[in-house]
Design a protein around this nucleic acid. Sequence first.
RNA 1: GCCCGGGUGGCGAAAUUGGCAGACGCACGGGACUUAAAAUCCCGAGUCCCUAACGGGACGUGCGGGUUCGAUUCCCGCCCCGGGCACCA
Length: 853
Amino acid sequence: MSAEHKTMVRDERYDAPSVESKWFDRWQQEPALYAAESTSTKPKYYVLEMLPYPSGALHMGHVRNYAIGDALARYMWMNGYNVLHPMGWDSFGLPAENAAIKNNTPPRQWTLANIANMKAQMKRLGFAYDWSREVTTCLPDYYRWNQWFFLKMYERGLAYRKKSLVNWCPKCCTVLANEQVVGGNCWRHEDTPVEQRELEQWFLRITNYADELLRDLEKLEGWPEKVRTMQRNWIGRSQGALVDFELGGSIGPAGSKITVFTTRIDTIYGATSIQLAPQHPIVADMIAKNSDLRAKIDQLIAEQRKAKEVGDIGAIEKHGVFTGRYAKNPFNQEPLPIWVANYILMDYGTGAIMSVPAHDDRDYDFAKKYKLPIRVVVLPTATGDGDETVMDPPLPFVTEDGLVVNSGQFSGLTSQQALKAMAEFAGQNGFGKPTVTFRLKDWGVSRQRYWGTPIPILYCEKDGIVPVPEKDLPVILPDNVDVTLTGGSPLASVPEFMNATCPKCGGPARRETDTMDTFVDSSWYFYRYTDAKNDLAPFDSATAAYWFGDRGIDQYIGGVEHAILHLIYSRFWTKVMRDMGIVKNDEPVERLFTQGMVIKDGAKMSKNLGNVVSPDDMIARFGADAARLYSLFAAPPDRDLDWQDTGIEGIRRFLGRVHTFFRDNPIVAGTYTPGYGPDDLTPKARAILRKVHQTIRRITQDFKGRWHFNTSVAALMELLNELNAQSEIFSLNGSAPAPRAFVADVQRTFVLLLAPFAPYLAHELWESLGEKENLLKARWPKFDAALAKEEEVEIPVQVNGKLRGRVLVPADADESLVKERALADEKVKAAIAGKQIVKVIFVPGKLLNLVVR
RNA sequence: GCCCGGGUGGCGAAAUUGGCAGACGCACGGGACUUAAAAUCCCGAGUCCCUAACGGGACGUGCGGGUUCGAUUCCCGCCCCGGGCACCA
């Protein structure tokens, strides 16, 4: 603290360093100031900012995020709500291991030191958190409940182990979930392509909830549409049908068939080949007897892998190999050649498609290349344009509005009708059925890393997979583990950890040495805040129900980068907990706000670019209030903010002017007679009062509505400018002093309006006004429409829509008065000279437009 | 390619229902205070044109159309920037 203060630039007017230091010390002595009450008659409000990873120091993005949340929390407190505003640490994860290797410091020690530092920074910034509820995910009293949930999911069949191709980051030396692969690269190493490895891993069955996760997005009206769209895309629901094509010849067992997935069963009469993914099981049978074919298929697999690693799967050229075999189209008994193609993916649908070149771009390209027949079975219908015709080559794609032709009994149906009729027909005849596939895959949670929650599973030679009994939790993560990044789980090198006893047979057992994905930690942490010290359960259900209500956290604030990862896992976790009966809400978050990034010189801040702005530096130079206020003022919160040091300088000047105003006009409670009537106010004082109420309205509306706090701050600046312009009213020895009680009222209101944004200065001024009660317990000022109403307004006068003059009239003036005055205006006269007024448009209080000819 | 945002002075931005475009701030220019500077305070300012000046005029919210007395705002067609998804059958 003191070191920071010494380097602070001294301002001759407002000594932010010593004021902030004084209040910082006081707030440390009153930790209960921001404590939430879990039982209260007041209405509850749960406001939450996404918890940070303890990387070592806050960055400006954090400051912005928390300044928004803190302003809201303070506003809600001042409006009489019982506010829960907690903070914690998402403290497991790979950076701690990297730091351990680099600095030879144990991950635990490194992490806890970072937490201490960042917590001090948060306190210095004056954020009003209830630290009694702090959650630190890397401590056993938290992660034991990760293990508990894992066991519950295992019991319910939601956690399972399977061998499959998984994403492997060679730099992290661990497996990644699909959600952690960004454009084919690792989400932490954006230049490192993810490799595919076949490993046995633990998965959580998020796909069980795919339909509900999609459906409930409709309910989340308090979420940005952007995030909902991203989740919709990610879940990727696709309605279609499965159709079996019987194999001819001697491939596979008798009666073998290939099942394809299609969303366009209405085009099945146009199918001219079957395309298989190179990894398709049938292909394995074929190449077993044909080494020439094998080599070609291997080539296709290599192309696919390469494309995936480059991250541009759409760009590779389509290649295929004819297998020499045929499969029978069940609708028309036609034999179709079976090909293997590099553009067919084994992990979507069934890994097999029917190729309909006339009605699919990719199939069309492929058919052209290999000279496969192209057969049109859907014609465009006349939809008003009227001149669509079938062309040669045929239209590559016709949407569902088309008319089905050349399709046996289905000819003449619309595509929509055919989709239904043909899927039903397939079902009735036992060679297919309607189905739904999802892009969403189960969540792979195993990580071959040390710094995470141990998976509470044992492997016994006799009993196989054996969950750790609940009474034996937590499985403690051992200290003193060698965390070199060699690949393979570091815990496997700790015999004391790995070797255990089977709880079933008492024989020797081996512990699971993988740890959990850290996104497990953050999937439910916000429930823990409601009951953070519970050592019998993750949280008390009734307490969580109080804070979450029916619809979840009232307001969640964080970066859009978690739109899919954290926010989809959290939704899944909540639904699982609901099905377990420990929460009542279907969704964790009622309202979500994603703030924009803080950038500098048009680019994301990074050490490489050397454009990083340090919060410590800003606090030292301008003060915490200024750093916070600027991050609210410089741009609307949902937009990116381009940081400019000269901008925060301006904010510091504003805070200095505020301080000066109060210093020069000291009105202390108890030194004047309270109360004043309207008659005691001069017109100028009434004008001030009007501006005050207009400001209350603007700021209150910003909180209730769009959160454009940049305009809230601007409103405060305007109010201050007005107060300064009317200084004779305020000065005790001015020429036209207003009643002291009035001046005190204005000052009080100003401080209340400033309080959510600049708490240090607000508290200081509040005290200087002689107020004894804590500012957070004071009431937000009430807006009075009558007092805010203008008495006189300037009405713009247009002639044919062009501004020609302005007239000053009483606010409620009617058309005739405004018109009379307008016609008296010289410029208006000149504009209508020699012409006739054919129409008059009058918008009361807004505008007069004379239409002339 | 598809789906979301966004495009307004030198810069960050404002204009909540179609009604004075540019609030507020930054940077800039001028002035006051000072031996001087910094700090602070006051004043000016969208662009272009006319005027010695006072004033006045035209243009102006990415581009082109449209609706309207009136469009940053609504409609149609484009361009550019940012983000997401993508051989998903």
